[in-house]
Design a protein around this nucleic acid. Structure first.
Lengths: 195, 195
DNA sequence: AAGCGTCTGGGACGTTTGACCCACTACGGA
DNA sequence: TCCGTAGTGGGTCAAACGTCCCAGACGCTT
């Protein structure tokens, strides 16, 4: 078997765990299965990670970092509505590009809510979501010289609610057309909050 | 220990499993823990259920039946917006009355998406959600003599997206005030779809 | 009061899990 | 070319798991 650096092994194991979660769910993540998926010897696991928990934590932070660094430059369109719609469609593109990631993220949130050793992870995750949404809304406000008719935190929460809700529904019924039209409709609705 | 009929034991074990899921998550459901929670001897488990899977299936169907039979009578208010707001607030009351149930329902959905032996369960769950929302919207339409500016299925989906999204966010940050104001805001927004 | 089917109590089984250990080997810097 | 470190291989461990078993205790019927 090829010898691989510990750092590279960590990456391989995290990537393998990600795939396992997508396939078998969070409960299916065992040290043996992850190692098999990664093509790594079982001993590599506790050589690279102090515990399974550490792998899970690393996976969470990596996934969230990837999520946040995937922030694209938001282009202002002709109108607030067009910009919001473009924003939501851009989000949706990331979902369709890698449906598995959302599946894992949802499982991650669910699991973080239940596992005391991951306490605060889900909270940080949503704080990041809200902060991202707030930043986007503020850029829209200054770009178009408008103000939101509600506190920007509240509009941000609505934005997150919409993306989350649409994603969750889609994970169940996989109706992409319905998801897209729902996002467009919400874009039009939220745009009416701009004055 | 009190002697209990097998039928009553089944009920006790299902109820106990429900509590365990709320506390420890789906992965925390073990035969021993459920029996301990129910105050039942371990032997009662396989005396009442052929397998753990049978308990899980029974729990799922029972929970969904309870959900659907809990449909309340919708009262029409002065305006479409007031009615929608009252509807959403009524939903929210059920969440705050028993936060654990939503926690379990969310875990159930998540688990049903991953466990092949529960295939179709999540889909049925969401079909029921959408049907309920559609029925409510149609009653509003006839009651106020209005039509929705989008297909009622699409508005129904938006309604489900909103309740789901708000609930999910609340399960994470437990910010009841934010949840309520988001629901009110969405009620106002969705009311603008009535013509 | 006797008999019988229902339920309990405690133990036991084989498997899987996370974690650990240590002799061994490959690789890269001296 | 040698040597020390980094990584491997295979095995072991205790705990927890689902499932099963069976002697015995209970309570209803007759």
């Amino acid at each position: 078997m090829a010898r691989v650096s510990a750092e590279e092994r960590r990456r391989q194991l995290v990537a393998a765990a990600f795939r396992v979660i997508g396939r078998d769910g969070f409960a299916g993540v065992t040290t043996r299965r992850v190692c098999a998926e990664a093509g790594a010897p079982l001993a590599a696991f506790h050589y690279c990670f102090a515990s399974k928990q550490e792998l899970l934590t690393e996976l969470t932070t990596q996934t969230m970092d990837a999520l946040l660094s995937a922030q694209h430059e938001m282009a202002l369109r002709d109108t607030v509505e067009a910009t919001l719609r473009a924003e939501l469609r851009a989000y949706w593109k990331t979902v369709e590009d890698d449906p598995n990631r959302e599946s894992v993220l949802m499982a991650l949130t669910q699991h973080a809510l239940q596992d005391p050793s991951l306490d605060g992870v889900a909270q940080r995750q949503y704080k990041a979501y809200h902060a991202t949404a707030r930043a986007a809304l503020q850029r829209i406000a200054t770009g178009f010289g408008i103000t939101w008719s509600m506190p920007v935190e509240d509009v941000a929460r609505m934005l997150v609610v919409v993306t989350d809700g649409v994603t969750l529904a889609w994970l169940v019924d996989r109706d992409s057309a319905a998801a897209r039209s729902a996002l467009d409709a919400f874009a039009a609705q939220l745009a009416t909050l701009a004055h």
